[in-house]
Design a protein around this nucleic acid. Structure first.
Lengths: 100, 100
DNA sequence: TTGATAGGCAACCAGAAGGTTGCTCATACT
DNA sequence: AGTATGAGCAACCTTCTGGTTGCCTATCAA
């Protein structure tokens, strides 16, 4: 649910952008991450909890991949706010002009 | 800097969307927020630290308003990741087809 | 079947985050 | 002048978070 909270950690953002290049296993993601495998696992769980990522076992490793839809939902939320702001600025401008 | 972290709190998200309807003072934002004025202030500071919001004193009250640019930067970041993902899926599809 | 590789579970820890309260300061109103 | 309103500062507390370590399970390969 709290998708922005999930995005709000640098390690998790990095994980996401690495996953954006294609599915990867946990050890794959751990390599060069600077933290432990367990740390990575925790982050992946958070991302999964936010619906940003999904895993599937393949043999002895579990492959993680991006769930694009949630990203786009998040993007749209931000879009919505900026649009509202544009409108409110529009109204403000109108208001100012009426003052003349 | 950590713009997503700033977005990752429900109170702050609500503050933002209220500000999207136009500038407001701290007490204005506090009303109906469910937390103390000091709490609101802290959240506003976080948002400001992320460059998402800006304040200006007007008489005895300080008016807070949205900083649209950062929102759009954040939106673009998400966009970038989904685009990369699209590409990677494209490559994956190609790879699968080669297998036949 | 033994070993190596990939991962899960649980406990633990330090520090950050969210929130409150109490006090002070400054501006506005009458 | 005196009071009410809007806000800042600092201390404090509790909970959540990021990260680690130690140990156990499962799969693959020799």
């Amino acid at each position: 649910m709290p998708v922005f909270a999930a995005l709000g950690d640098e390690h998790r953002l990095r994980l996401l952008s690495r996953l954006a290049a294609g599915p990867l296993s946990i050890s794959g993601l751990t390599a060069g991450s600077g933290i432990t495998r367990q740390g990575v696992t925790k982050h992946l769980r958070v991302l999964a909890g936010a619906g940003l990522v999904r895993s599937s076992r393949r043999g002895k490793e579990s492959l993680w991949q991006l769930e694009k839809r949630r990203l786009e939902e998040a993007r749209r939320s931000l879009d919505l706010i900026s649009r509202q702001w544009d409108e409110s600025l529009g109204k403000l401008k109108l208001f100012v002009e009426e003052q003349d």
